[in-house]
Structures are given as C-alpha cells and as structure tokens.
Design a protein around this nucleic acid. Sequence first.
DNA 1: TATCACGTAAACAAGA
DNA 2: CTCTTGTTTACGTGAT
Length: 635
Amino acid sequence: MMVESASETIRSTPSGQNGVSSLTNQPDGGGGGGGREGAASGEANGEMSPVELLHFQQQQVPVSVAMMSPQMITPQQMQQILSPPQLQALLQQQQAIMLQQLQEYYKKQQEQLHLQLLTQQQAGKQQPKEQPLGNKQLAFQQQLLQMQQLQQQHLLNLQRQGLVSLPPGQGTVPLQTLPQAVCPSDLQQLWKEVTAAQPVEDSIKQEGLDLTTNTSNSTSFSAAKVSPPISHHPLPNGQSTMHTPRRDSSSHEETPGSHPLYGHGECKWPGCETLCEDLGQFVKHLNTEHALDDRSTAQCRVQMQVVQQLEIQLAKESERLQAMMAHLHMRPSEPKPFSQPLNLVSSATLSKSTSDTFPDGLPHPPTSATAPITPLRQGPSVISSSTLHNVGPIRRRNSEKFCTPISSELAQNHEFYKNADVRPPFTYASLIRQAILETPDRQLTLNEIYNWFTRMFAYFRRNTATWKNAVRHNLSLHKCFVRVENVKGAVWTVDEHEYQKRRPPKMTGSPTLVKNMISGLGYGALNASYQAALAESSFPLLNSPTMINTSSASGMLHVGHDDVSSTVEQVNSNGSNSPRLSPQQYSSHPVHVKEEPAEAEDDSRPVSLLATTNQNVTIADDRDLEEELPVEDLS
DNA sequence: TATCACGTAAACAAGA
DNA sequence: CTCTTGTTTACGTGAT
C-alpha cells in the first residue's frame, strides 16, 4: 500500500569489511510503556459495528516522511559517519519518534471513535428509553476497549520487535511516552460524562485527558495531534497511575507555532537533545547544527529506513487487526471464549511481566501481535526488545533461555532481518539448524547454508569470512550437526536429539511452557500448538511445503508453542513429510539425499531480494551473491 | 570465582 | 596453486 516508496532508493555503496567486533551491545532495557490491562468484560455489541470501526482503521497512517531526503547515503556511509553507539541511539530515537506518530494515528482513531460515540449518544438521548441506551453505551464501551486493545497490541508488537524498544540507560525517550491507550477508568469517567450530558469536564481536564477534550470539543485535535508524547523527565512511579502518560503528553507545551522537531524545550533531531529556550532559538539551532551536510543526510537516511520498516510493519499489523476484527464481527453474540479471554490472559501476562521482569516498573508489553496467540509465552518481549540492539556479538542465550521459537521470531521479523543490517539474536547453531530444517529434505550443503544466511539476514551479507568461518566451526563443533556424505558431496543434517541435549536444561519459563517443552521432547502430541505456531509464523520463506498446511484460523486460538524443539518434533511426528527418522537414523541411516537441490523456488528470492531490498551489500558480499546465484542452480 | 556456552580468529589438512 | 570444505585449538566475553 504505502511501503513501496523507499526500497528502491536504497542502494549500497561498496565499502570494506568493517570490524565485526566493533559493534557494541546495548543493554536490554526492555522497551516499555503503554501496557494497559484490558478490562473489557462486556458481551454485547453496540450499534457501531466492527465494520464501522474498520472504516476508521482504514485511514492512512500519518507517518511522516518529511525527513526523507533525495540525497542518498548508504548505511555503510552512515556507519562511517556515526559510530555504532551513535547510530544505535539514533535509530532508537527515530523509532521512538515513529512510534509516537503511530500513537498519534491511533489517538486520532480514538478521537474519531469518541466523536462517533457522541453522535450515537446524542441520537440515543432522543430516544425515550434509557435502558437500551445504557446497553448501547456499554456496547460502545466494549467496542472501544476492544479497539484500544487491538491498537495496543499492534503498538506493543512494534515495540516487542525492537522497533521502539528503548533502553532506559539511553535516557533519550522515557518509557512512559510509549503508547498508552485510554484506561478503563478514563472510559468510565467519559461514559459518565456522556451519559449525564453534563460538563463534568473540570475534574477530568485537570487530569489532562485527551478524551475530555475530544468529547467536549473536537477543535482541540490539532494541539493533541502535534503533541509529542516524548518526555525527557520520566516520572519515577509511572506505573502507579494509568493517567500519568496521558497527563504527561497532554500537558506538553504544544503551540500551533511549534516545530515538529522541537518539544519540551529540546531539539528532537535524532541524536540531538540540545536545549533550546524557545522556538526561535531552536530554529537557529536547527539551521546551524542540522544543516544539510553528510551527517544530517545520513540521519535522514536512517529515518527513511525506520519509516520504511514501520510502514511495512504497520501494514501487516493493520491487516491482521482488520482480519481479527472482521473475525470477531462474524460471531458477535457468542461469549467469545477466545477474544475476550485472550485479552485478559494477555493482560495477566502483562502485569506479570511488569512486575517480574522489568525493573523500571513500567507497563511493558507481554508480547506482540502474538500476544493473543501465545499468551503464555514469557519473555519474548525481553528477547525482542534486545533483538534489535544485539548488533554486536550474538548474545543468543537470551533466545535460548527464554525459549524463543526461532521460527516464529524469524517469521515475524524476517522482513526486518532481511533488510536491516541487524544481527539476529540467535546462535549460529540455531540458525544453521533453522536453515536445515526449513528444507524439505532437512539437509543442506555448506554452501546452501551460506546462501540461507545471506538470503535471510542482511547482517550476513558482509563480513563473510567471519561468519562463514563461524558456521563451519559450529557445524564441526556441535554434535547436533551431522555430516552426511553424498554422491555429489556432503550435506549437513540436524541431529535433533543432540540439539535438544545441547539445550540448557533449566527452563525459566512458565510451568506450562516447561510442560510443553517436555511433551515436545517426548514426541508428544502438540499438533495444535505446532500448527498454531506455524500459522502464527506464516513464514513465507518456509520453503518446505509439507510444513505449511495449517489453518491460520486455528492458529489464532491455540496457546502457542514455546520452543522450536516442539516444532521440530511435531514436524517429525506429523509424518507429513516422510516417515519420521530419528536423529540417529539421520546420521547412521543412509539418508535419502536429495538429488537436486529443492531450491528452485529459492532462486527467485535472492534475485528479488537483491533487486529490492539488498542495500547492505559490500564488495565482498557482491562476490558472495554473485556466486550464490549460479551455485544454487547447479549444485 | 569457576564453569559453560558462544563468538571469533586462526592454523591446518584434504580435495576439487 | 587457489579455493572450498572441514576440523581443531585458542582466547575473550557474558551469563549463571
């Protein structure tokens, strides 16, 4: 829809191999904010149908692309201009800003909802009966809550995927600024106000709720719309009151004459927090410090990429949201054993993660779009928030410890990893295993593994000598990788048993998680979970056709699996692929080695990838990619 | 502090 | 001889 704008403009500039270890790790700050317990507990649907809600959703997101510059600077150049920490901080700031814009978009939606609400209410007031009106209002409230929860999940998903995660140590953007929907108490008050049709706004206005201004007068849109929720002075106990973020954002000094890059007395140019007394000083600062130079252009470049990623993500999530709402609309009268409880479960997870995981005590997302699907999964938010920031050496223990399903994580972020020069938060071993297991025959040559890496991750399109060496090293080192001789050479397979043995025995997840793990290890029946995971993943690059036979609808309803292991075991036990071979059989039995690489469908991908998204290719990578293409059709 | 898992680097060998 | 593939060792780092 709107995602095709910038990709073709991204071109790479050849650059030497950078020091791979120069990148630094960012602390897992755990992006946060915005988490809100959904308290929807009603059952009836109101006059405003989900279709109408969808109508509101179909509006374009006002993601600003104003910073896009025709001058193109490659990420390599950017990295030369900016040090990795700078770059990372810059990215994070950009992402926060983009999230803010998304939040504004949602806020606008909410405002429209409330306007609609008011209209409905006014119409209802003319009706003589009060009781139906109450039902309507309840239904409206229900709709609002659902919508807000969905929006929240969307935003949390972005956050979970690291697009907006902000280590608290960065101190650039406090967590409170992250999306904060209207809390139920606010809604209650709003509804009280609407029902009474009396201006009880004073008390609310003191709270600075946007809802109040929206319901009282729509002319206050502009101020609220421009208001940057970014606060540089996070309250220490932001989680104690749900009003805090709202109050914070609405009390900001946004005047019609303000500048989008100016707020809170600070310059909001990425990476710049220069204090400016007033707008004039800021403009002066802007013209002097952020003039058209390499650095500014590079930062615009980063912004472009951020926008692009967010647009892609937003498009996906919007689609998902609409599908979800459409689905809910199909069965409005049912008690909704899945929709409502899902939110509740998700909320429970949220509160748990809030209290258990995050030291800042702020509401944090339990998970992302997968939250309703895998509500019991713990830790993905942590993992994913660290995902983007693990630019340096892989700290894959995160993923291992929290049992992140690499397949689903990869599925949800594969577009990102494919395009962004970000190191995936998985170990080489897990990546290799994933590559092998994705193939129908569960076997790959070394070169095919290389190709998978370069195809799936922009990060592995450079420093080829380093990571290829690491791949070989891992293949040789880990017993879980079994080399099988073939007529045409050797292929590598995965000894799943060994891989599981290699896993750390201690599970930090929930009991359910551990149980699923155990049952998965014991070849238990986790078909539903597995299929749910696959459906959730909707991994387009799963080139194993036998793996994709799932019902996406069922995926919405199942409690997700928690580990790749169960996935793999299910693949094996499903028997849909072939008679299940134990890992030992794989290694000792004459493996049915594929005669021709089942990469016919892969051939197009690297090409398209090169044509559209590969912007991080270096000279060495060009060589690799050149050799990649012929290799795939001759080997 | 010790241990483990992992990433990185490098030496080396075998084969194409 | 060069390159790829594969093995092995060493070392540093972060987590437990």
